[in-house]
Design a protein around this nucleic acid. Structure first.
Length: 380
DNA sequence: TCGGTCGTTAC
DNA sequence: AATCATGCGC
DNA sequence: GTAACGAGCTAGCGCATGATT
């Protein structure tokens, strides 16, 4: 199976629908960030793509801002899907669960704010990894940018990181493999930045420290010793710097490749001179990375955004769920007439009636509107 | 995780 | 109902 | 003369909103 992440900088720029772009990426799971769309502005050709099932999270604060979506091939239909990292947005069935000890680390208002900008979608899949059936959870994130003008966003970004790690490790501890992918908005090391001496990098240092803690650096032999300088006090004992459980899959396969960037400033036309940064990643827990990942790379030749796609190839194959979880976009009542899967109407009657009502699927903060009745009548 | 250049100012 | 001007966030 | 210090700030997209035709 193959996964892709891509910050698309506005999903509505794909005028004729996004299907062609999705197909050309040729992946089972495609995670996009910065959709800049809200439910009321989502059109059918974007939301309902033949051959895929999709899962959106929208910014609740402002429109035209942030937002992520995960598109799964029908052969990769998840068994669970949910919006956000905190669980506060998921009062419906079909959620992934496993929230760790976030309650001890964050106050509830803070948690709500961290999930208020449509920055995360979590899908859970069954996979067959050499005979054994296992669970793989995909966390699609658009991590906040730390605007230097706004000091509070710096803290927000770090808190989001902390929450992301908390959730990812909780799911991992529960026994699932975990893939964390998306626009992480921090370049990890000097090699990942066109100008490592830039002042900005010092400002982003907390983000790098987080990455160093989140990632496992075994297998990346270079420079493991000079990292000790920012953790000299605890280096002798627990060595928390390298306690991470995840692997940067691109760097795992290309440990020394330089000028490998995924994001370029449009202000200066920096893409033509490849003056960029690598801030879009596919992270996988160590075991998954080592045992299942067979390749990973960036796609700098793909245009259409100020970011390029990143892909990872796994040797395991996905086992599709027979029915998409409630968060699936195709359950939205405004698209009820555009059901794509004929098989949805062909499943056994007893199974269908024992499932939860479609109205439980209505995601997010939007009102349920007057179309719901129409939808229910179509369903039953 | 650093070195590094250049022009102006202060001594 | 289009178009423009301005602002915001990257 | 030389050490110390500070260097300089525009670019372009996608989107929203409100005012103008």
């Amino acid at each position: 199976m193959k996964v892709v992440t891509w910050n698309i900088n506005g999903i509505r720029t794909f005028r004729g629908g996004i299907k062609k772009a999705l197909d050309s990426l040729d992946a089972d799971i495609i995670c996009v960030q910065e959709t800049k769309v809200t439910r009321d502005l989502l059109d059918e050709r974007t939301a309902i793509v033949d051959g895929y099932n999709s899962y959106f999270s929208y910014s609740r604060g402002r429109s035209g801002y942030s937002g992520v979506a995960t598109y799964c091939k029908d052969s990769a239909t998840p068994s669970a899907a949910e919006e956000g990292l905190t669980g506060l947005l998921t009062n419906h069935e079909g959620a992934v669960g496993c929230y760790g000890h976030q309650a001890a680390e964050f106050c509830s208002e803070e948690l709500q704010l961290l999930d208020n900008e449509g920055r995360a979608v979590v899908t859970q899949h069954r996979a067959k990894c050499q005979d054994k059936e296992q669970t793989v959870t995909v966390i699609n994130v658009y991590c906040p940018r730390a605007d230097p003008e706004k000091p509070e966003r710096k803290q927000f970004k770090l808190q989001f990181y902390k929450l992301l790690r908390c959730r990812a490790e909780a799911i991992l501890k529960d026994g699932s493999h975990v893939i964390v992918l998306g626009d992480i908005n921090t370049s990890h090391r000097q090699i990942d930045h066109c100008d490592p001496s830039d002042i900005d990098d010092f400002d982003e240092n907390p983000g790098r420290k987080w990455l160093n803690g989140f990632l496992y650096s075994g297998g990346q032999e270079e420079e493991t010793n000079d990292e000790e300088s920012d953790g000299e006090s605890e280096v002798t004992s627990t060595d928390p710097i390298r306690s991470g459980k995840f692997v940067d899959t691109f760097r795992y396969f290309h440990p020394t490749r330089t000028n490998a960037f995924t994001c370029w400033s449009t202000l200066t036309g920096a893409r033509q001179t490849n003056y960029g940064t690598r801030i879009d990643y596919i992270f996988a827990n160590c075991q998954l990375a080592k045992e299942q990942f067979v390749a990973a790379d960036i796609m700098p030749e793909v245009e259409g955004s100020d970011h390029c796609p990143v892909w990872g190839q796994l040797s395991c194959s996905l086992l599709p769920s027979s029915k998409p979880p409630p968060l699936c976009t195709r359950y939205l009542p405004e698209f009820a007439g555009k059901q794509q899967k004929l098989s949805r109407f062909l499943i056994k009657v007893d199974q269908k009636s024992s499932q939860s009502e479609p109205k439980d699927a209505l995601p997010g903060s939007q009102e349920e509107g007057g179309k719901e009745g129409e939808f229910k009548s179509i369903q039953s």
